[in-house]
Computed example of a mutant assay.
Amino acid sequence: MDRIMVVDDEKKIVHMITEFMKVNQIEVVPAYSGREAIKKLDATLKLVILDINMEDIDGMEVCRKIREKSNIPILFLSANSSQYNKVLGLGIGADDYVTKPFDPIELIARVKAHIRRYNSYDNPVKNRIVIRFGDIRIDRAARKVTKNHSEVSLSTTEFNLLLFFLDNRNTVLTRKQILNNVWESELYDRNTVTTYVKRLRDKIEDDRSNPKYIKSVRGIGYIFEVNL
């Protein structure tokens, strides 16, 4: 059974999500504050559902702390829909965002999709595959990216997006293709791809406004130009 952590200072929300997940064979580790979440984080967890507005440590700070230790998928919850662009724009490492009140069926679908992708990419490989180009080094097995010998902190979705670009390098990809292969869900729109491409550029390109690798193709999508 997969284990996730649900972090919210509203105990009723945690209990409700726990019951929904239990029906779907997902075990929930509850946390009622940011500090408790950081203490309970461990390698057995496959995903964190994280409320943004908490009194002791807000969800954004908790997300940053988690990213220092783990690339586990993080799904934000918030009653404030206007925070969506702020969360993604900050590039703090969230993989998804759901506003309250939420549809339990949609939440479960998103959680399962993230766990499925995390499991598929997190499985050990027989041979350690390291990719180098320019000043960037990508270790598939360790799920680690470095630039100029400094580690680049990527969320699970950002790392998966980077791998998809690499596996389809020098090929024009539509936003729909990227969405279907990286997110594997119809619950997201193509603006999601645009947002995550921007975040990835911020982290691996020297100049986001004049990208060397992830280039836009007007009216179509993107191409990842690199010679390996």
Rank of each mutant, 00 (worst) to 15 (best):
I214V: 14
A113W: 01
I72Q: 09
R64F: 03
M16S: 12
G89S: 14
A43C: 12
K215V: 15
K147V: 04
R199V: 07
K126I: 12
S153Y: 00
V125H: 13
V130L: 09
F165E: 04
Y213C: 03
I57R: 11
G91W: 06
V145R: 00
L187F: 05
M54E: 09
K100I: 03
G89E: 12
I26A: 02
A43V: 14
T195D: 11
V87K: 03
A113V: 06
S216T: 12
F164K: 05
D56Q: 13
D135I: 03
R208E: 10
K144M: 07
N119T: 03
I52A: 12
I26D: 02
D202C: 01
E205S: 02
T146K: 05
K144N: 08
N170D: 15
R208K: 14
A109E: 14
E68R: 08
H15R: 14
V145H: 00
S120N: 12
K144F: 04
G93N: 04
L75R: 01
D206C: 07
W183N: 05
G59E: 08
V172M: 11
V226N: 09
F159W: 01
R3H: 11
V145N: 00
V62M: 10
G221C: 10
N24A: 10
D9V: 02
F165N: 07
I13F: 04
G34W: 14
A94Y: 07
N24F: 02
V29H: 08
D9H: 02
Y97V: 00
V23L: 13
L45A: 12
Y196T: 02
A37L: 11
Y97G: 07
L187H: 07
N24M: 01
Y222F: 15
K12T: 11
S155C: 06
I178K: 01
L161S: 00
R218H: 13
T44L: 08
L88H: 11
E68V: 01
L173F: 08
V193G: 04
V28S: 12
D95M: 10
K11Q: 11
A79I: 00
A141T: 14
S185W: 04
L88F: 15
V7K: 06
I136K: 06
T44Q: 12
K39W: 07
V6H: 04
T194K: 15
V98A: 02
R218A: 13
G91Q: 02
V87Q: 09
A94C: 15
I57S: 12
